[in-house]
Design a protein around this nucleic acid. Structure first.
Lengths: 241, 241
DNA sequence: CGAGCGATTGATCGCCATCAAAGTGGGTGG
DNA sequence: CCACCCACTTTGATGGCGATCAATCGCTCG
């Protein structure tokens, strides 16, 4: 189970982790000024997740919301016979867990070791009441995720296996550039199975498509979890938007 | 082109169409009290759309937001070679057109003759600034659509043709029950092609699946745009969530 | 009555799934 | 340190679901 490693200490003030938070500028908290952030931090706890650990399951009551500060996660749903669909991947700075339904509709699991900031729902909502600009930010986040989900509908409904894999690599490249790496160097934190379940394919097809892209000198496989895009313009043309 | 049939007359007051609006309680406006509604109505115009007409196109700047007061619409995207994906259908009371991107990502077209209430974006946002409870409603709408889109991801990525069609019929039944009709009587305003492009199938497959369901006595085709669900429990079991 | 469009039905094809087996690499215990 | 193990990945052979191609049906409207 996930373990809370540091309850927030109100007296820490300036050296509170939030102030040094690597994702503060790109995440929900970005709209808060330092005094507001101070009050916001007081309702959050840091939670560490080992690779594969579950943060919340489909059907769980939505007890808290989270910001992912490091690592990567997946949102997935299982059908009764074991088929799985991954609705999205989450990276540093992403926000998760907020829903208007009375239960989570997807399961959130850590892909690699991850750290999230946990905000109990009631206290989060109370904070929202006093900070309308944060509510607006929240709407912007939801609208952006809606746009991404609808884009994924096009991919799943109408694209070929090749187009799916190429689109996925380009998305990864724009979302998750390898830290300090060269341009077009892409980190691939998830397994081939995760990729397959995100793209509506089987693992063998993903593997074959990657091999084919390698053979065509469009990508270079620098490891199972890293690769390089060798011809982004041609890849973009192959992705069909 | 769509035609504005009635600019709002501020002096109309109580007999303004909004007060009699058939979708007021289920739509965005539902959170407004009558005096707020009076001010809100002042920024809206009624627009009629003939079947097939376009309200906005992918790429258009998002100049306004809309509430659909009658009829049905579709949100779609075209790939360069003509493949089409429909991201969703809209019915009475649905809200559309709001995006945080700088262009619409999908095209909105009327399926049958439709009527929308049009709110210019700038004035809509100014109104939002003064009505935080409406902003919250807006977030709830976006979150709900996000949930629906993710559910559709599962359908497109992992369900069989039969499961797709059955899931679609059940969704239609819950969203769009035939007015004044018997229970399990379902209106199907869209064409087979629209259904196919929503489910990631071809028209022939949709037709075959419907015929198969009819042959199995699970549905009854009462017309090309109407049918009856004869065994909802079994259909639900076939839909795989 | 005929034209035209959407829907249905039939025959065949091809992409990707499935089944099967071998390769790879990271971690653990001897 | 090395050998083994196990999970993940890759590669190969075959099959099936849904796409594609093609023809007919049936309704609406002129």
């Amino acid at each position: 189970m996930a373990t809370a490693v540091s309850d927030v200490q109100p007296e820490l003030e300036q050296d509170h982790p939030c102030f040094a938070c690597v994702v503060r500028d790109i995440s929900l908290c970005g709209v808060l000024e330092s005094d507001e952030l101070r009050r916001f931090k007081a309702i959050g706890t840091t939670v560490q997740l080992a690779a594969g650990e579950t943060l919340f399951m489909e059907g769980d009551p939505p007890a808290a919301v989270y910001t992912l500060t490091s690592g990567a996660m997946r949102l997935s749903k299982l059908l009764s016979d074991g088929r799985r669909q991954i609705a999205g991947f989450l990276f540093r700075g992403d926000f998760l867990g907020l829903t208007v339904e009375d239960a989570h509709l997807f399961t959130a699991e850590a892909i690699g070791d991850s750290v999230v900031c946990r905000f109990p729902r009631a206290r989060f909502e109370a904070f929202l009441d006093e900070h309308p600009q944060m509510e607006r930010r929240l709407f912007a986040i939801a609208a952006h995720e809606l746009a991404a989900a609808r884009q994924q509908l096009v991919l799943l409904g109408r694209k070929t296996a090749t187009e799916k894999v190429v689109s996925f690599l380009l998305m990864l490249a724009s979302r998750c550039r390898k830290e300090g790496g060269l341009a077009d160097e892409v980190a691939v934190p998830m397994t081939r199975n995760d990729i397959a379940d995100y793209l509506g394919l089987r693992i063998e097809t993903v593997s074959r498509e990657l091999t084919a892209l390698k053979t065509s000198r469009l990508i270079q496989l620098t490891g199972t979890h890293a690769l390089r895009l060798l011809d982004k313009p041609r890849l973009r043309a192959m992705a069909e938007a």
